[in-house]
Design a protein around this nucleic acid. Structure first.
Lengths: 385, 385
DNA sequence: TTGAAAGCGCTAACAG
DNA sequence: CTGTTAGCGCTTTCAA
């Protein structure tokens, strides 16, 4: 970080000739003035510079910036001018250090490129920016170790709030987050909505999302209601995506409750469309007694791959095989047959989490958990629409 | 921002009983001790607390944290213990203020949800995180006014580098960025690679991207080489996306050079697949003498919409109408006919920009411009693959 | 309505 | 190898 000079058109820097001279200060004491090299500023325009140009002191400029109505009209006018003249940009590090308040919000998401989390990031960004907050964002790659490391680093900025993904964290992460929350920093968990990390435990932090267990069951229900008795759940290739696994487990549990057969498959890594194509092939190639009539997928890309491959191989969808996605990406309703899927509040999770955070920052200490609505979109690939 | 207590399991806060008492300090002078209320800390564990627990002074702990090899083995051991005991988390605001160096990198992108910029964000994040930097990200919504506002706000954090999108900025933004750069802060422009904002002008900041003019011409060339003489360019619905417009202008210029006819169309706002479908319809409905035989699109979503609508209406692609996208989203090669498109270094732009920034931060003051490779993927929709 | 003094938590500079 | 001193640029507290 280097400081920068005034960006004003005329670019005449206002330097303070009165800046206290450390040697002179030292002379106030009884000891002889040591010939120390004074530390100089980092070169940027400071409040003092503006104050000097306006003929007031720094604190008055500071006040004008924070509560303009307290400053007298004529003084305010001079400060306004000085501000423009010097091109002052307030140093937020100094401000945060002095006041103990920062407008930085830290967000940890598994991935920024994935359209699911990208839209959440957009929702966070839109809402926080409107409230004058800045977004410090990291991607954990679904790793709890990286999450821990990043939480630790981000806390160094003393953020005004923290947003993490999901309810599962390492013990150390949990301790750090709990410490932060005890000290009054809002902590929000997004993309999940369920009692604590272990079944039955209470919620630790504010949750904004939905229950993957409930969605998983609903996905099974949808296929069961269409009369299917031999189901498959195709999990994503990401081993650490516990939410996809939870949906799969709930899906299987519901199917078994209903006396239907369930196969659990795991998609290979790599391009998810290709993985979906591959999984369709695998289901077609399965021995007759393992053959399924309906498959649910961990995401729409996998499901679309399967749908396209089915088209290429003239496998009748949903007649021979019904397909159900998750995420309702915009491609889902464009294909023929159209893909049934679960529409998610991707963007809304970001907006709602940011709002909850801002509310808590403003002093509201209600838990603020929010179960957000999702919707199973029944389309042609499962015999609907 | 509120500070947080030690997150150590035992959570025994180490508070400094020796913390200098301001009243006692005042007593050193000749004036009578004023009964001022001392300002208290913000409640977090500080370097002093750790130092006290380790039986050293703050500066030694600070040194241990920054250059451990300078500290004696036995002292280091005690500090290590004290660090763990207190659960110290360094205050980066204080550190940045004191040292004038910050590991924050600010990035301004038009949009975080758009898969193009989302992947760039991921590239930035991956590379900067590996280098110990933090990413402060904002979305401008393609607005130069918002960009200006955000640059101003972000500079308040005295970032170690700034990444902006494109080479067009408001004059005030430009002045701010130039001030920052003069002071040694790297400024990188991504997603463009062209001489200055006005034709012929020199580049102002380091550019990492590609020339949209060259790509636009290449898109026209591809269609011309396939024998098309009546072309269309379908621009995006985003009025402020000057890069899409530049591609369109270059596309038209190249077509006209070759004596071919060109129509410029603008897609409506809203779902880009639907917009693409709508534009296909518009082209089919055009009067015979305006009928085109090939269309290039501002992005793959528009092109896919058109491709799917063509399929639905049994319009032969590429026989009756060739279609060419931009972006090479993964769906492009999945559809039948597969969509020709321009593959872009979406992720690489982020990685390369971050590397350039880190290099400049480390003192390399070469311009560091980087033209990144793109590739026209000739597939079935234009008679290839 | 404005100012003086002190301090936020840390690091640079120098001394030992 | 460790400590002392001063100061980064701002805000809080109190006084006028």
């Amino acid at each position: 970080m280097l400081d920068f000079p005034a960006p004003s058109p005329t670019d005449h820097r206002v330097r303070d000739p009165d800046r206290p001279d450390p040697d002179r200060r030292a002379a106030d004491t009884d000891s002889p003035p040591p010939a120390r090299q004074a530390r100089r500023g980092h070169g940027s325009v400071t409040l003092r510079d503006v104050a000097l140009a306006a003929g007031v002191t720094a604190i008055t400029v500071s006040r004008y910036l924070r509560e303009p109505q307290v400053v007298a009209g004529e003084t305010a006018e001079r400060i306004r001018l000085a501000l423009a003249e010097t091109g002052y940009v307030p140093n937020k590090q100094a401000g945060g250090l002095a006041s103990g308040v920062s407008n930085i919000v830290a967000a940890l998401l598994p991935n920024l490129a994935n359209s699911i989390f990208a839209e959440t990031a957009q929702g966070l960004s839109d809402t926080l920016q409107a409230a004058g907050c800045e977004l410090l964002i990291t991607s954990t790659g679904y790793s709890l170790e990286r999450e821990e490391e990043q939480v630790r680093a981000l806390l160094g900025w003393r953020p005004g709030g923290i947003i993490v993904t999901g309810r599962r964290h390492s013990p150390a992460t949990r301790a750090l987050l709990e410490g932060a929350r005890r000290a009054g920093t809002p902590v929000i968990e997004v993309w999940d909505y369920q009692a604590g990390p272990t079944r039955g435990a209470a919620r630790s932090f504010t949750q904004v999302g939905f229950s993957h267990e409930v969605v998983g069951r609903a996905m099974a229900d949808h296929l069961l209601q269409a009369g299917h008795r031999r189901l498959a759940y195709v999990d994503s290739g990401i081993a650490e995506d516990y939410r996809a696994h939870e949906r799969g487990l709930a899906f299987a549990a519901r199917a078994q409750e209903a006396g239907a057969g369930v196969t659990h498959l795991a998609a290979p890594k790599g391009d998810p469309f290709d993985a979906g194509r591959h999984m369709l092939q695998a289901m077609l190639d399965a021995p007759a007694r393992q053959r399924v009539t309906a498959a649910a997928f961990a995401n729409d890309h996998l499901a679309c791959g399967a749908l396209l491959e089915a088209g290429a191989q003239s496998v009748a969808v949903p007649k021979r095989l019904a397909l159900l996605g998750f995420g309702d990406f915009s491609i889902a309703r464009q294909l023929r047959p159209s893909l049934s899927s679960v529409a998610l509040p991707r963007y809304e999770i970001g907006v709602t989490a940011a709002q909850a955070l801002l509310r808590q920052r403003a002093g509201d200490d209600s838990p603020g958990h929010q179960a957000l609505p999702w919707q199973l979109m029944a389309r042609q690939s499962t015999g609907g629409g």
